[in-house]
Simulated scan of single mutants.
Amino acid sequence: MAEITLNSPAAKAAVPGDLGWHLATVLRGYQTRFETAVAGIPAGIRGFQVLSAVVHRDPPNQQALAAHLVIDRTVLTYLLDALVEAGVVERVPDPADRRARKIVATEAGRRTLTEYEARVASAEADLLSGLEGYQAETLGGLIGHWANAVHRAQPGANPCEAMDNL
């Protein structure tokens, strides 16, 4: 696959507005694969995101989890109800504040997350299959860096809205 640089014909052909179309196209491809990969997990994509954040980010309480995911507390309550009912997370009193609740994954939840992470990784690999390995790795690093910069500039922006409005 030919490398695209700032002076390559592919880069010169871009016009203002193309970036948005390209991002939307990639996002739609990702969303389709992601939805398929997490089909069956309680509460779908958002359930996966909650379970992943609980396991990998270990937020100190439910409020911190909502803030991390930029999910309204009311919506998070419904998501957590579904995950608790499925036996993948549980609410436990926060040792620092007995009025607050910490969300922890159960052993079944950790196994569930491992299974679904493998599915998501496969879906992501499928989406990136049009790129050479080094290109996919570079793209992942650049997008991560870019996303963090955008998040710092707009910390309250809800990434789920972009998916919902796609």
Rank of each mutant, 00 (worst) to 15 (best):
E107C: 00
G87E: 13
G141C: 04
R119I: 07
E90Y: 01
R33P: 01
T32L: 05
I45R: 13
T25R: 08
E3D: 08
A86W: 03
G17V: 08
G87W: 14
P95Q: 10
A118S: 06
T112I: 01
P9F: 15
L23H: 01
A24C: 01
I41D: 01
T5K: 02
G109S: 02
A67P: 00
A147N: 06
A96C: 03
L27C: 00
T5L: 02
I41Y: 02
I41G: 00
L76T: 08
T138W: 05
A37T: 07
A2F: 12
T77F: 14
Y30V: 00
V120G: 00
Q31H: 10
Q31L: 13
V84L: 05
A118N: 02
G47P: 03
H22E: 07
D97Q: 13
A121Q: 11
E107Q: 08
A82R: 15
R110S: 07
L131D: 01
V55K: 01
Y30A: 03
F34G: 04
Y30D: 00
D58C: 09
W146V: 04
T77V: 11
N158L: 04
V84E: 15
A149L: 15
T112E: 10
A10V: 11
A125T: 14
V38F: 05
V88R: 11
P16D: 09
V75N: 09
L51T: 04
Q49P: 00
